[in-house]
Design a protein around this nucleic acid. Structure first.
Lengths: 150, 150
DNA sequence: CTAAGTGCAAATTTTTTGCTTCTGC
DNA sequence: GCAGAAGCAAAAAATTTGCACTTAG
């Protein structure tokens, strides 16, 4: 389990300063939550978790903070499932597998994908800042369950 | 401009029958709208357009119909922009460029992308049904405008 | 004829905003 | 001390639902 050490807390403060953002407890806890999970949670989920540590936090602070993080490129809004936006604090280039049954989102790290580059001819569409590949299907978990149901 | 001929209308009826769906006027018009535009409209936009031909149609019929089409694989829900789901009736494998400034979504057709396949090692995550690559950036239109503003 | 689909209005869910109070710097 | 952030409650926006009526097959 990843421990948020004093060191990484300091890092958070420094990162905020650099961007002219105030390093509040709420922001720190929201980021901590996003960093420690691989679940790509939505605002509501983050709110419930963070509230355990910061009982006074409000849901709209979570929404606002996610937006701030998103605007600053600290967080990405990944696939929407059931109309809820879900977030990922992993800013290194990576891709996602989304289970169309349960909505689970799994990070895909693999050298083949790392090497993937936008074809040159797409440059005519505009400036490409980010490439994100989304694989949709049935996750192994749901596959097993589907097989069992037959 | 693509004309929805009597022939393609018949095709719609047959396609519905095959899936056990009723071929209603509303459904036909919604599909027609989706087929004739390249704009990846949201429910509200489709509603406004279709209403010109079917003044009695309701917004929730549009929502319901999009859902039915989505469940049947006739339509894909592509990138969400400003929290609105946007739809695409182009069911052939293709990808999207999304302008992060204006939200414009442009289809990407290119042989390099057609050849793209999910790396084998991803099979452990589950069954992959669909691969969708999303390029994010600033479209040429907004790029020009940004340059002009400087 | 009847199951599926529609319209309408109301409900729900998700996200944003206005305003006051608080706090990091 | 002050600008930026948080909390709260209310609003707005997006989507869904219950129910009575209509229609395709």
């Amino acid at each position: 389990m990843k421990n948020i050490t004093k060191k990484s807390a300091d890092h958070f403060v420094r990162a905020c300063r650099k961007k002219g953002l105030k390093a509040t407890n709420q922001r720190r806890e929201i980021m901590r939550e996003l960093l420690k999970t691989k679940e790509h949670p939505d605002a509501e989920t983050i709110f419930r978790k963070v509230r355990k540590r910061l009982p006074a936090i409000s849901l709209d602070t979570v929404y606002r903070t996610l937006r701030v993080f998103e605007d600053n490129g600290d967080v990405f809004r990944v696939a929407t499932f059931n109309d809820r936006a879900r977030y990922d604090a992993n800013t290194s280039s990576h891709h996602h597998f989304v289970c169309s049954y349960c909505g689970r989102i799994v990070d895909c790290h693999c050298p083949v994908l790392d090497r993937f580059q936008a074809p040159r001819e797409l440059a005519r569409l505009g400036r490409i800042d980010r490439v994100h590949i989304e694989f949709r299907g049935l996750c192994s978990h749901c596959q097993t369950r589907e097989a069992a149901r037959q």
